[in-house]
Computed example of a mutant assay.
Amino acid sequence: MRILHTSDWHIGRSFHGHQTLDALRGVLATLTEQVREHEVDVVVIAGDVFDSATPAAACYTLLTDVLRDLSATGAQIVVTSGNHDNAARLGFLAPLLRDGIHVITDPATVGTPVSLNDEHGPVHFYGIPYLEPIVVRSIWPGAALRTQEQAITHTMGLVEADRAERGGRSVVVSHCFAAGVEPSHGVEREIRQGSLDVVPLSAFDGPDYIALGHIHGRSRLAEHIRYSGAPLHYSFSEADKPRGSWLVDLDADGLANVEWLELPVPRPLVTLRGTLEELLTDAAHDAHVAAWVCAVLTDATPQPEPMRRLQQRFPYCATIQPDPQNRAADDGLSYRSRVQQTTSDPELIDTFLTLVREGEGATDDERELIADVVAGRTLAEVSA
């Protein structure tokens, strides 16, 4: 059986205020073609289908179109909900979907698999939707469920009990933070990285393959335990992480092969560092004019209208991060002490500018203008 493992579509997420629906539609169209080209039997989507619990209508349209196109390839589809999804909304129409599309959002069903057959017999797909401990306690009142680890361990116990009865090969689909993932892989903020919410890999012992979601960069935690990551870049911290999915082959004995399938990046992401003037004039940045740009400005003081000016050169400049360098050393004097030491109005103004500009006083041109204003000269007199 051939399985395509994807996750974290986050339909409806914006990128620094820019909509991503069209870009995601194009990427998922490529994914659908890969499913057809590689004759995939089952597409697994491991949670965070939507980015919001209340998606806009256009998000539902995109999901409907993609699921229809994937189904048209002949592949079965197994979908679970993530922490961004509203499980009830995502699963509401599950019973009415066409044959071959299985949406698993009810934690109470985790011990009952979707069983699909190939020439070697059944493969059991156990979907584990995102488990909020405070919510699932009512489902299993006798279990201690205060953490993600406890919730996943409990549900995997149910899976293992069912596997022992059914036999055969199995795949688990789960949305959680598993031990061994580096923070740089794009960890979502909603599930903490502290020890209470990290799930040990030992919890996933048994099944032939564990398809995980929640981390936005691909990650191989063990040969049979992997994150596919998101199909789009949703933050600049993910810029160096490839986008794609895992192509998983099961033979009669279990896991046989895992291959990475690359997805296209609609618009590359780049972080540029320097003063505003350097970013606006350095020819080395010409190659990034069409990229999403994060501008790290090293000017010692804030510059006027930096985003407007940057977008004149980089139309897709999305965000600015100030990182001032070469500031004047702090002499330890309070502003009051500085004022008391001034001997003229121009010097007083320069002292104020030094304060608000965090160490940089008036420029030479500004000093000339200040002197003219203090002297009472009009603009016409200065121009003459």
Rank of each mutant, 00 (worst) to 15 (best):
T6H: 10
R377P: 10
V43W: 05
T343S: 12
N83P: 10
Y316I: 02
S52V: 00
I349L: 15
S202F: 06
E165M: 13
A94L: 04
G91E: 01
E277M: 10
A295L: 06
Q76V: 10
A371E: 13
G244Y: 07
H288K: 07
P324I: 11
F314C: 04
Q150N: 02
L196T: 07
R137S: 11
R98I: 14
P346H: 15
D205H: 11
G121N: 06
G12T: 03
Q76P: 09
R166D: 01
I320A: 01
S228P: 02
R220C: 05
D253G: 11
V78T: 09
I225D: 08
L21I: 14
G168K: 01
A287S: 08
L158H: 04
D251S: 04
E182V: 08
S337P: 07
G12D: 11
N83C: 02
H233L: 05
G168N: 08
H84N: 08
H285T: 11
G47E: 02
A375K: 01
A23T: 13
A284E: 11
R338I: 13
V356F: 09
P264H: 06
L297P: 02
C317I: 07
V123P: 01
V103P: 01
I11Y: 07
E360C: 14
P306W: 07
R273D: 03
P266A: 01
S71K: 15
P133V: 10
P122D: 07
A75L: 05
D208T: 01
L97K: 06
S71H: 15
A53Q: 14
V296A: 09
D323Q: 15
D253W: 06
F236V: 07
L255N: 08
P129A: 04
E39S: 15
L221S: 07
P107I: 00
V78Y: 05
F204W: 10
H18G: 00
E381K: 13
L131A: 03
S237T: 06
G206A: 12
T281G: 00
S184I: 09
R338Q: 13
R218E: 15
D41K: 13
H216L: 02
Q34I: 03
T105L: 04
D106M: 04
G142F: 08
E39D: 15
T275E: 12
H124F: 04
V248C: 08
R367D: 14
R327M: 00
C59T: 02
D350A: 12
T319A: 15
H18P: 03
E366I: 11
V103H: 07
I370L: 14
V296D: 01
V373A: 13
A328M: 01
A371T: 05
D162L: 03
D8R: 05
G26T: 13
D345E: 14
H84M: 11
